[in-house]
Design a protein around this nucleic acid. Structure first.
Lengths: 258, 258
DNA sequence: AACAGTGTTTCAAATAATGAAACGACTATA
DNA sequence: TATAGTCGTTTCATTATTTGAAACACTGTT
């Protein structure tokens, strides 16, 4: 566990490295278990866990004694959205778009070669097989991902680093095919995901530009395949694009660090 | 800045102490500014900020060079809700309650002598003067707060520590009056906040018990005073209580660390 | 009773954090 | 143009903290 780097605070780096290991697939860890997984001494891990538990960033289950993410993190994490110009100022626009399309609407940004969902509004209709706020999704098989990639400045670099795994039989797994799709998306001004991410799920995405013309986010609508008929798509694209330009006007020259 | 304590990791404590200073009233800090405010050396603060920025927990505004909360925190914070039994399993119940009452519905827990809002569903009606997810509100002048306090195990201790400040002319600012109100709430099984927190805003709260009979959360509905007429309250209480017992059944023997 | 699991504590040795001062790059004032 | 006042950032010897092997206390199992 040698995280040492320039002038950065080692303990802080290690603490957040620890927190990364608490994800939905493995939300609770014991001391030895986590120490072994990371390859660090159990005393070190114990003290880090105890520290994080002390301030509420982690909580220890009273019976199992395992640690999981705590409410302090919940609180701090939600402050980000409240304080972020992108999320805070534009939530109302997402609600309007949702009302018009009556499907789940998401706002996502490009981060670490994935889509990070930064805001969403659920459709009044039932059926909620969709993306969680704060979750990450792959770039190559989602409408938001392909949109962001199509308008990304470092598109080629990013594609080189991607793992074009097959999420469904419809996923684009070939570099050439992906690049062709991206070119088409740039021409069309929208991206379509026909069950590339999940069978039965169709997503439609459009880019959100800032006032310098840089694509800083993607806006998408998603729902079950039977509700996304060919004839409806054109209307949906128009509604999404209207929402995207409304966002553009609200945020001005907003920038996001990738 | 002497945070040293037992065996805990000093740097980690300091890092999270820093993060606490980034709240909605002061979301962006410069190095010197924050160092002076905390009373620490600017080099120390600089390195902590740089470390947190390096991993995305903070982000530095490209122009002002000031730091603010970053997307890594957003991501981690939202994992808590996804992984939490209380929030994850019960969101659908909140949606049903919202549909029936057609007012904003909140789920809150007692934490550090405040109410922490851990889930919410917005009313389809407009008007959104309400509590943000992840925000904290005082115990003595909110329906959720009074509910949690009325059924709290360490009620007396907590009341001693409270600052019964006057948020509106209707806030309960006297210890005796608060205790009387709490006794009534325990008898009634619900708490009413008539503009005690904000003028024009009425909230109704009921306790959520776990299967050991411990009040672990409060469920509330809130809206403008003109929509909370006397004759409607009884129905609202019944709907909220139905929701609260539905939550109780879902979460079983759930515990929260305060 | 011995064993194999936990999480936790100990203490000298190794390492990393600290802070006064200097640096470079700005901006506003004289 | 100087000069003074900002800002974030870097330096380096001093200081304080983190580290890890081993021991501890506790649990449930063989």
């Amino acid at each position: 566990m040698n995280v040492s780097q320039s002038n950065l605070n080692n303990s802080v780096l290690k603490a957040f490295d620890l927190l990364e290991h608490f994800h939905p697939d493995k939300p609770a860890w014991g001391v030895r278990e986590l120490a072994q997984h990371i390859g660090a001494n159990k005393s070190t891990i114990y003290r880090l866990l105890a520290t994080l538990e002390h301030i509420g960033v982690l909580q220890q289950h009273p019976e199992t004694e395992k640690y999981s993410l705590g409410l302090k993190l919940f609180e701090l994490g939600h402050r980000v959205g409240i304080q972020s110009a992108l999320v805070n100022k534009t939530h109302d626009i997402l609600e309007e778009v949702t009302k018009e399309i009556t499907e789940n609407v998401h706002l996502g940004i490009l981060q670490s070669n994935e889509v990070l969902v930064v805001d969403k509004v659920d459709s009044p209709k039932g059926l909620k097989l969709n993306f969680q706020l704060g979750s990450r999704s792959p770039l190559h098989c989602t409408s938001m991902g392909k949109t962001l990639l199509a308008f990304a400045e470092k598109q080629e670099e990013i594609i080189e680093e991607l793992d074009l795994f097959s999420k469904t039989p419809y996923s684009l797994t070939q570099k050439m095919g992906l690049i062709a799709a991206l070119n088409q998306i740039r021409k069309d001004g929208f991206a379509l995901d026909r069950e590339e991410y999940e069978l039965g799920l169709i997503c439609l995405g459009v880019p959100v530009f800032n006032q310098n013309g840089k694509a800083i986010a993607a806006l998408s609508a998603s729902g079950p395949a039977n509700r996304f008929r060919e004839e409806a798509l054109k209307d949906y694209v128009a509604i999404l694009q209207k929402g995207a330009s409304a966002i553009q006007q609200k945020i001005g020259n907003f920038q996001i660090k990738f």
